[in-house]
Write a protein that binds this DNA or RNA. Structure first.
Lengths: 319, 319
DNA sequence: CTGTTAGCGCGTTCAG
DNA sequence: CTGAACGCGCTAACAG
């Protein structure tokens, strides 16, 4: 293996053109005759040319890192399975491009942090999670066009359809008194699943039983207890997060209630070990890796078709 | 808010010194008189100076990203809770430094990949997971001193002590026929827990029952079944991964065996939802965030005291 | 201890 | 379509 460095200058010399031309060919920006293009490409190939990412970024003014900013009340959201999985997905997708990811927690009030991020000269793009419509509109100009939203708060996954499918399933297996543990109030995206729920209960003439949750298992536990205290005949509990569902499962077990015989339970997200618990959790799965990678590319300015990713039910044992 | 950029030159001018001096003060490298130091610091503060990470990295020759390379047979190890959590921890720790992290999967045979990483000019440091002694010794020279090892395969956490503590606990609560589901054979670090196990069983005169696992819940399920088939009187199953333990729990439930009454179970790692399952998993917890951050800093050349991080038992319901 | 002089490796104006 | 400059913002050698 050669002594590592083959610079753009080397390539240009080998190809018999100027560095400028070589640059144009290799970055695909700017005109170049077929002849010189071929020569440059060949030379680059032969020399095993690998552009120096740092130099390129300095010259072009683009940054070197994508920041993944997660907005939530709690700082330990950074341990959340969805967040860690998305982070890794972005970090994996960007590896070939020589870009890295930084993660940052943002409190609910984060305008100042966004301003600070806007002045970060090393920032190539921003991926936001847990966001609110208002904040997106108030995004600093420098961040506009370099930002993509992901996950809860985003519009990337068809969560209404996912929750809807799970609810339908509960109905199909005969459940008629279905309760819902929803998402936190501050999250705009919490509305869609609730709407889907109200739609079903209204059209099927079922009672509406909604308790607010917050994506934690503790809240799931408490919410499940509250539901059964208030509506003892509940025969199914739908949630919008696996953690919540697991908490609910714990509460039910403690009360000696059989799952799914007495009460069916559904989660949402399909966390890595959702299928490994007993009884195995029925939930909705999402292509988190693809979603995160697509968001990162879009934030970087690539034109990625804005597909609404599917939310597919995974029926295991709890429902 | 000012028009964003305050360059080193501006700071130097304001402070009445040369850019070089300003640089020396701000990077802490090189001599500087108390007078000019104060002046520079004050000017930087006043101007809200934020160094341009990319320029700095180009000039100093350091890279912009830390690569987190995970070696494993399966590519979906990148979805493993430990890996995703470590990734996020590194990405969080590096954010203030303007550095990002890239993740990459490495097969068991990865010498070529390491060579390629060695020629990556954007690479600031390498964090390795799932590594073998031999590979570390064969590390390309360019990577030497820029690499740190983490997690399974590393020597950062006192896993022998953690497993030992869990095993002792099982003994203390009266278990006398304890089986162990170990780690995969190719991982050097799999040896320590097994050694701790053999130590206990030998000194306490207990039967040794070891079955090989691989950190997956599927294997945990199969291994638990095998254990009970072969040694029906087993009253405890210790594992070296929470996923494995959850799989074992599923198998036990399917067999109608009560946990922990009939068989106690212990995991290892304390994955995010380990306490949210029912029965709540007893396991050993590790400061993954600190471990990962420390590894990243060490890889970057910072002198981080080489502490052996603790592996602390968390006794919940399964043992 | 400090200022001056050179680059780091590449993108990007401009003439031609 | 191409080449010659210049500059990104900062650090690293050297002299002084």
């Amino acid at each position: 293996m050669r002594e590592s460095r083959a610079g753009l200058a080397d390539v240009a010399r080998q190809a018999g053109v100027s560095p400028a031309t070589a640059s144009r060919v290799l970055t695909g920006s700017g005109p170049a005759s077929a002849t010189s293009r071929a020569a440059v490409l060949a030379a680059a190939e032969r020399l095993g040319y690998r552009p120096h990412p740092v130099a390129r970024q300095l010259a072009s003014g683009s940054g070197t890192r994508v920041v993944f900013a997660v907005r939530d009340e709690r700082a330990d959201i950074l341990r959340d399975p969805f967040v860690t999985r998305a982070t890794t997905a972005i970090a994996t997708a960007l590896c070939p491009d020589g870009l890295g990811v930084s993660v940052r927690h943002l409190g609910l009030e984060c305008a100042a942090d966004l301003d600070e991020l806007a002045t970060d000269r090393g920032l190539a793009a921003l991926v936001l999670a847990g966001h609110d419509r208002a904040l997106l509109d108030a995004l600093p100009p420098r961040l506009r066009g370099r930002t993509a939203v992901i996950g809860a708060g985003g519009t990337d996954v068809d969560s209404a359809a996912g929750v809807g499918a799970l609810l339908s399933h509960l109905y199909v297996i005969g459940r008629r008194r279905i309760a819902l543990i929803s998402g936190p109030a501050w999250l705009a995206a919490s509305a869609a699943p609730v709407a889907a729920y109200r739609e079903l209960t209204r059209s099927a003439g079922l009672p509406a039983r909604v308790v607010r949750g917050d994506f934690t298992s503790d809240r799931g536990r408490a919410a499940a207890r509250a539901i059964l205290r208030r509506w003892p005949d509940t025969d199914a509990i739908a949630t919008v997060s696996d953690a919540t569902a697991l908490g609910a499962l714990q509460a039910l077990a403690a009360l000696g209630i059989q799952v799914p015989d007495d009460v069916a339970v559904t989660g949402f997200d399909d966390v890595p070990l959702a299928g490994a618990v007993h009884p195995a959790l029925s939930t909705a799965t999402h292509p988190v890796e693809e979603i995160a990678a697509a968001a990162a590319r879009r934030a970087l300015g690539e034109v990625v078709p804005t597909t609404l990713f599917p939310s597919s039910p995974v029926l295991r044992a709890t429902a």
